[in-house]
Design a protein around this nucleic acid. Sequence first.
DNA 1: AATGAATGAGGGTTCATTCAT
DNA 2: CATGAATGAACCCTCATTCAT
Lengths: 204, 204, 204, 204
Amino acid sequence: MAQNSTSTSHDYEEKLQGLLDVAATIFADKGYHHASIRDLSRKAGVSLSGLYYYFSSKEELLYMIQERSLRRIVDSLRDKLEDLDNPEEKLRALVHNHVSFYVSNMAAMRVITQEYDALEGEYRTKIRERRLEYSNLCTEILREVRRFTGGGDVVPLNVATFALFGMMNWIYAWYRPGSNVPTERLAEHLYRLFAGGFTGARRR
Amino acid sequence: MAQNSTSTSHDYEEKLQGLLDVAATIFADKGYHHASIRDLSRKAGVSLSGLYYYFSSKEELLYMIQERSLRRIVDSLRDKLEDLDNPEEKLRALVHNHVSFYVSNMAAMRVITQEYDALEGEYRTKIRERRLEYSNLCTEILREVRRFTGGGDVVPLNVATFALFGMMNWIYAWYRPGSNVPTERLAEHLYRLFAGGFTGARRR
Amino acid sequence: MAQNSTSTSHDYEEKLQGLLDVAATIFADKGYHHASIRDLSRKAGVSLSGLYYYFSSKEELLYMIQERSLRRIVDSLRDKLEDLDNPEEKLRALVHNHVSFYVSNMAAMRVITQEYDALEGEYRTKIRERRLEYSNLCTEILREVRRFTGGGDVVPLNVATFALFGMMNWIYAWYRPGSNVPTERLAEHLYRLFAGGFTGARRR
Amino acid sequence: MAQNSTSTSHDYEEKLQGLLDVAATIFADKGYHHASIRDLSRKAGVSLSGLYYYFSSKEELLYMIQERSLRRIVDSLRDKLEDLDNPEEKLRALVHNHVSFYVSNMAAMRVITQEYDALEGEYRTKIRERRLEYSNLCTEILREVRRFTGGGDVVPLNVATFALFGMMNWIYAWYRPGSNVPTERLAEHLYRLFAGGFTGARRR
DNA sequence: AATGAATGAGGGTTCATTCAT
DNA sequence: CATGAATGAACCCTCATTCAT
């Protein structure tokens, strides 16, 4: 209950996350390569060298942004799936989870979507694994949906998976939160567009 | 008819297009900001300063790549639409046109998709106009489709438009030509996924 | 006799010497300027700032390493000289003392040999004095040898002195302890090479 | 005979060599790691970035300095050896060649002597080979000398080789050209010191 | 129509050192 | 005694671009 330690790793974590947030914004705005550590230094009010106490390279910074957001989005999805049995509801949960997370973390999600190629070596490998984990989760749900609705397998599951992610990840290019389409509704639109095509694609 | 001048604008045009192609590949690979004019000089076998005879800045290079490809894709679409009356066939033509062009010009299309923000000022304005022209074309077709199939207007047309482009533009992230899904079939898959959802979204 | 204080200058001295040893190794390996205090912090298992309790600057660290080793080598030489009368034996003692100390303190000796120029101001002055003391000792012995063997003074004493130190200080560049030439023998080889030339140089 | 080309690779070579000379001086003065490319830029009157037209990294600069001097000293030695048969004369030529080159190229030679460890990878390998070539040449001459003078093999040839180089390479630490010992005489002193010990070492 | 040589601005990163705790 | 957190200065290097030739 007591919470009286003066300076703990809690402070560190908080400051680090703050830096990651600012960095995500900058990376989203100018692109990873065009963004400079000096930009971050300026916006975060931390000296250039002081930043390196929190990460050891610009690339690690990029990695941390991607890793943390991917983990959060997948964790939050798994949470929601636990309470659901109906495959279509699961798919619906996935879309709503993704879209809602995307909109509230536009910067980080855009970085994930656009700056994967900027990672190299081990960083890239680890992020690839996390992405794969996520898309596999999606593919499995789609498999259940198809089994459940009895649709023909006209469209390969992986094509469908990527089509869905394409629809959702393109959001950054046009959608602005606070527009006349609320996020909830946007998610529902995308869900219906995709699900309608996916389950209905059998007849033809 | 005469073609006897030793060095004509034909040569110039050919060489320029060659440079644009190489540049598109590099920009697609490394991203606009990370790519360097030196990379282009090396890959194209032209001296660094020699390049500046063909374009006046790196940004103009980026602009030309985007402008030319956008023009070609829209022109080719308009061509195909002329012969069609059925709205669903028009939508189908749009998807096939986009996907087929995308796959055979992966580099340039990726640059269009990902490096729009790298443009500034007048360049950006002009490309925005071309993009708008293209997406308006799409929205109009969707409007016709909806009128034709009599679907309810659950999903706003602009949302649908962007969803469709999202699906198609995500191709670069996963599809490799020569895979076991031929381009033709890929286009058909995407068309059915989208059209099924878009026209079927009324019932629910 | 009493040794009951919990933390004495003995502890301090011991820890300091440990740090100097580690530092000497690092300086020898990477060179003074290329080595970083962070390297020392890592290798010594002491925090970066914690190091500054033991020395006040990187340069002082370098100074202490050189000063202590120079003092030890000269002290040990003086000790040995006390028991000797024969000039040639004195020269032999000098060579053996130097070589044996050099090999067992390769790191520090290499630092002395190579990083004198890195010192500035007072530090440099003090080390210069110690070096001078040592080389004067050598020159004096050579003078005695020459008087004793009656050789002509073809080779100036200072040239001979530096030639001798050159031979001995180059050891770091090629000799590895544990090779098939034991240190004792190495010293004897160098002694004979030099003494033979120095005392024999008269005839010609 | 005509030599009227306006701007040729001759200019380039000349400028490069000039830069290498200035760089060698700086490296000799401050040490490779402590010296900065900015120092070179300043002293050479060339912009920082302009330097990179002539070399691609600080390390390549170091490599070129070492490589060129090593080649020159070995080439010049081979030249002189061609006219000689007597082994002792060959040894004498080696010492005179080394010392005279050393003194007239003090900076570069000091860099070779002191900054070998700063090289890494391929650069290091190549310089090691050149050094080996040189020291092998020396060892072979010593072998001939021993055979010729019939001395016992008390001192291993490699020990003798390194002792000789040690004597000669220590020059930078004390000798100043223009002192009261002319270079010619210095070389002769060192030759006699070494040769006397090496050939005389048999008697004992 | 093309190039070699050069530049200023800015990039990411490391460094020795400090200071409150 | 020892540390975590921070900093200013300096580092090497790359960049898009220019200009005389």
